[in-house]
């Protein structure tokens, strides 16, 4: 066998070179550049100028960095806590063999066809205080019509829109996984007289634990990209109530043209993003899970 393998043709590093170079320029070099830019002042006009630690000294005194971080984490937790149970329940429900379930879940998936921008704009129109739904329900019930303009409600509105947007996707994961649960498990439980709820807790949930972990990892890592929805829906407002850290960086960079300072925020963002991913992967045992699978 050894003599055979030596004669086997193997592609060299050259085959991977285009991908590596390309990714190096647009994926990896920017991380280095952004770190460099964080030590400069640059207004987009002319060249960046060395500014030493100035941006980094400003960072701790910027209240919006601290609050932005808090809002980002709050949003991550809330989206996870709303999406996971609903996706799990609906996914398991949709996995059932009934025809009606298949039809309904097809409708559930429809939001998947819309882009983030489209979804945010639909909901912005629907939540308009004068011409949207809030005007109607406040007439009927006396509840506030000021959904996107109320600092407490606006974040929940974003959580809801994100739920509307991403639930179908996670539901799909659970549905696919739930279909693979052996029917014999359910049959046995049914003979034991377990109720549907008991079957859900005793069979479905434990059987789906890997999917729960995978879906959670995706949600938490993906939460760094909620930027677009927030920008389009509330612009970070009212005031700064929904100004998540990525949005703060964007506004500092492309609205205030303080690109050096914005780069410092971006470095923080990379650190938080990577830290969060590592933490989640470690805590959830996601990596062991995947390596187990790779071994198969």
């Amino acid at each position: 066998m050894t003599s055979a393998t030596t004669r086997v043709q193997r592609p060299g590093a050259l085959w991977a070179a285009p991908a590596l170079i390309f990714f190096g320029i647009f994926g990896l070099a920017p991380i280095v550049i952004v770190a460099g830019l964080s030590f400069t002042t640059w207004d987009g006009l002319g060249n960046p100028e060395w500014a030493g630690l100035h941006n980094w000294r400003t960072l701790p005194s910027d209240k919006l960095v601290g609050s932005g971080l808090m809002i980002t984490l709050t949003l991550t937790v809330l989206t996870w806590a709303t999406q996971t149970p609903l996706a799990l329940a609906f996914g398991a429900w949709a996995a059932g063999p009934q025809r009606i379930r298949a039809v309904v879940s097809t409708i559930f998936f429809l939001p998947l066809l819309l882009s983030t921008a489209a979804i945010a704009l639909i909901w912005q129109a629907l939540l308009d205080p004068t011409f949207g739904l809030p005007a109607q329900w406040s007439e009927l019930t006396g509840l506030s019509a000021n959904v996107l303009g109320d600092p407490d409600l606006a974040l929940w509105a974003i959580v809801f829109v994100l739920l509307w947007q991403f639930l179908p996707f996670h539901m799909l994961l659970y549905q696919a996984a739930a279909k693979q649960i052996p029917a014999s498990l359910y049959e046995a439980a049914e003979i034991d007289g377990a109720s549907p709820l008991q079957r859900f807790w005793r069979i479905t949930v434990p059987q789906l634990r890997h999917t729960i972990i995978a879906s959670s990892v995706l949600m938490i890592v993906g939460s760094m990209t909620y930027f677009e929805t927030v920008l389009l829906l509330t612009g970070g407002g009212p005031g700064t109530a929904t100004r998540i850290l990525p949005l703060h960086m964007y506004l500092k960079g492309f609205s205030a043209f303080e690109m050096g300072y914005a780069s410092a925020i971006a470095v923080l963002l990379v650190a938080v993003g990577t830290g969060l991913s590592l933490l989640v992967v470690r805590v959830s045992g996601y990596s062991q899970m995947t390596s187990e699978r790779e071994g198969v």
Partner: peptide, 22 residues
């Protein structure tokens, strides 16, 4: 009013609030 913080001028809501007499 109560809703000013969510009212926008970008989608023309504000103009219509005035015109409608609200």
């Amino acid at each position: 009013g109560d809703n000013f913080s969510s009212l926008t001028s970008d989608n023309g809501s504000a103009s219509t609030v005035l015109a409608s007499g609200k």
